[in-house]
Amino acid sequence: MTTRTARSSRGRRRGGSSHAVARRRSYKGPLWGVLAALTVLGAAGFVAVDGSSSGTGARSGPTERARSGRLGSTAPTSAPPTTSASPSPHTSPTPTPTPTPDIPATGPGTFITAAGGSGAVGSGTVLRYRVDVETGINLSPTDVARQVDRILADPRGWTADGRSAFERVSSGPADFVVRVATPGTVDKICGQYGLDTGGEVNCDVAKNVMVNLRRWLLATPVYAHRVKDYRALIINHEVGHFLGHGHVGCPGAGRPAPVMMQQIKGMHGCLPNVWPYDDRGRYVTGPAVS
């Protein structure tokens, strides 16, 4: 039916031969009726190709759609067919991976002290502390100090023992100093007291709570998506040493890991935990280890 309709359309555009004109004059009524019927049937056939209610229009190929367009088919009343072409890659950009922080291997060994201070938190003897950041590393001393302040003031922290209190100062005497430094500087200061930090870990020596910049920024695999939580573990673990607490092991599979456990060396079945005390004020500990 499609071929016959197309041929009739071309005949009408060209005007037709003299015999065709004569036939139209002699048989005007019946011939026009036949042509009108053929035109209607042809139009109906083309609508079925592109806009069939059965969904075939949506699956029709580009050749069928182009042919329908050239012959001037009537637009279907249903929604136009959806394209099956793949979306442009620009509509779904590939997420940009988070860049790895630039961590210098070592630094000058000089420090900038965070300005200001905090009020005393906890009860008992007040321990004054200072927060220093090594010169030349991309950390704000003010921001680091605020994080340390929050950690030491948390009710699950060391103030829960009822004997410890803390207050940050920026000048004058300090009982201990929290220092964030490059791995090389941590190794140097800790090594002066016989500790081997290997460019990887933190330490507490004399009045220095030494925080390795790599651990501050990257945490460990267990805490890779909870870096700020891991910072609480660093501070609580090393301040715990300053307070006289030694290392302990995992108390049992499925139980919270004590902060005095060396979690960087493995969890041994324990669950991640960064606070000395739980929400009920109970001390989280385990068997003593050397």
Rank of each mutant, 00 (worst) to 15 (best):
Gly117Asp: 08
Ser8Gly: 01
Tyr277Met: 03
Arg215Asp: 05
Pro101Ile: 09
His247Glu: 12
Trp32Thr: 15
Asp143Glu: 11
Leu152Ser: 11
Gly69Lys: 14
Gly42Glu: 11
Glu134Pro: 02
Cys250Arg: 10
Thr285Gln: 06
Ile103Gln: 03
Ser290Trp: 05
Lys265Trp: 03
Arg10Tyr: 06
Gly191Phe: 09
Gly119Lys: 06
Val186Ser: 00
Ser9Met: 14
Arg146Gln: 10
Gly269Ala: 06
Pro87Ile: 01
Ser86Met: 08
Val144Leu: 01
Arg24Val: 09
Ser60Val: 15
Ser78Phe: 03
Gly281His: 10
Val131Thr: 12
Thr182Asn: 04
Gly42Lys: 11
Ala120Trp: 09
Pro99Phe: 10
Val178Trp: 04
Cys270Pro: 01
Gly119Met: 02
His245Asp: 07
Val289Ser: 02
Asp279Asn: 07
Glu167Thr: 05
Met267Gln: 12
Thr63Ala: 12
Pro251Phe: 00
Thr56Ala: 04
Gly286Asn: 07
Pro80Leu: 11
Ile137Asp: 03
Ala114Gly: 08
Ala288Gln: 09
Cys203Thr: 08
Pro76Ser: 15
Pro155Glu: 10
Gly55His: 09
Tyr277Gly: 00
Ala20Trp: 10
Val144Asp: 00
Thr110Ile: 02
Ser290Leu: 06
Met267Glu: 10
Pro108Val: 10
Ala115Ile: 12
Val177Leu: 03
Ile234Thr: 08
Lys28Asp: 14
Leu152Ala: 09
Asn212Phe: 08
Gly244Glu: 05
Arg156Glu: 09
Gly42His: 12
Asn236Ser: 05
